[in-house]
Amino acid sequence: MRDGMQDAYPAVWRFCVSLTGRRDWGEDVLQATCLRAIEKADGFEPGTHLDRWMMRIAHRLWLNELRARKVRTGGGLVPVEDIDVADQKTPAAETNIFVSEVLSQINTLPDAQRHAVSLVYVEGMSYREAADIMEIPIGTVMSRLAAARKTLNQNMPDQKRSSR
C-alpha cells in the first residue's frame, strides 16, 4: 500500500490543492487522505487505481468533514493569491507568467468546475473516472466541464493555438 501511495502521491497532491483552492489546505487534506487510506486499506481492491481511490477519499473528506471547518475557521474560500506556483518568485521568464496565468485561471473557476477540470483535463481521466471520484453522475461532470470550458475559453491566454 505504501509503495503504491508513493507513486500516487503527486497526483493526489495536485487534486488536494485543486479541491481546496489553497496550498496549505491542500496539504492538510493530503495528510488526512493518507491517514484515511491507511485506515481503510481493507477497502482498496488490488488491481484498481490507487490514485483514483485516494482522490475519492480526499474528495469525501473535503466535502463532508473538513471544508466546513476550514471555511468557518479560515475565513473564506479560494484566495487565488494564496496558490503558490513553482516559479512565482521569479516571474521574469515569459513562460512562467504564462503557466502561472493558466493555474490562476483554473483557480478562479467555481469549486465544482475546478475539481472536474483538475481530474479530466489536468490528470487526464475519463468522464467515468472523474464521476466515480466525485460521486456524481457523468452528466454533472459534463455540465461542469462545459461551463468551465466557456469561462476558460474567454479568459485563458493563447487560446488560438491548436485546440480541442
Binding site: 497532491w13 495536485r14 490543492v17 513553482a86 493558466v102 483554473i106 489536468v122 466557456k150 493555438r161 480541442r164
Partner: peptide, 28 residues
C-alpha cells in the same frame, strides 16, 4: 467551448508546487 487542453495540462502540471514530504505513515 474550444480549449487547448494539452497546453492547459502542461502548464498546470508545470505550475503546481511540488508535493510536501510524504507523512510517515503507520502500517495498514
Amino acid at each position: 467551448l474550444t480549449l487547448d487542453v494539452d497546453m492547459l495540462r502542461a502548464s498546470a502540471l508545470a505550475a503546481f508546487p511540488p508535493p510536501p514530504p510524504m507523512p510517515s505513515l503507520p502500517a495498514a
